[in-house]
Write a protein that binds this DNA or RNA. Sequence first.
DNA 1: ACATTAAGTGATT
DNA 2: AATCACTTAATGT
Length: 219
Amino acid sequence: MSENIGSIIDQYFPEFEEGLKKEIEISGLNKKFKAGSLLMNIGEEISHIPLVYDGTVRIFREDEQGNELLLYYLEPGDSCAISLVCSGREQYARIKAIAIDQTRAIMIPINLMDSWMHKYKSWYYFVLETYRLRLEEALQTIDSIAFKKMDERLIHHLRKKSEALNTLVIKVTHQDLAFELNTSREVVSRLLKKLEQKKMIALSRNSIKIINLIDAPTE
DNA sequence: ACATTAAGTGATT
DNA sequence: AATCACTTAATGT
């Protein structure tokens, strides 16, 4: 699986024009990250932006107490919207990025961003599109926090997780879920139990199996 | 067998 | 829905 950058671009970013592809071949670094490794931390200077083509990366914010708020996942074909725009003024990351699986990405030096935005229409649209998608997601998350009850949020979260990890058996503790949803472990346990009784999931220690996750009309 | 960690439960706010 | 205090179950050493 040691493909060259050009064929990776063809496969995962086919919309990029030839000139852009050439530049990526010249300046991009093909990197591999182990599962669990930190791609970016808060306060770090952003020097490269990733074009992910294999694996999954978790992007999240963290507050002073170390509480995490999941922002989104990066999957093959994605890039990090926040770092794309950080290119200009804001040189320091305000988010944390951790590889969930082994992840491979082409790293592009941030100093090229400005000129690429002008030179390559396909890059310009790629950035806009990435940003638009994330904004949409962020809005969804906001109203899910603001208007939805915990049970709906949990279902939503589990579904997302299962999609992102591409598995029906999610390896996670109730405590982790509680952390991700900013609630308490007991609440998660109780809600999961309800979902289990409705035959939507199956529970066992450290893992949750998705059986039939449909939005349950809350009683 | 024992210690540790995850999960379940009831009561209280 | 959060928190506390406690129990029970599963797992590692």
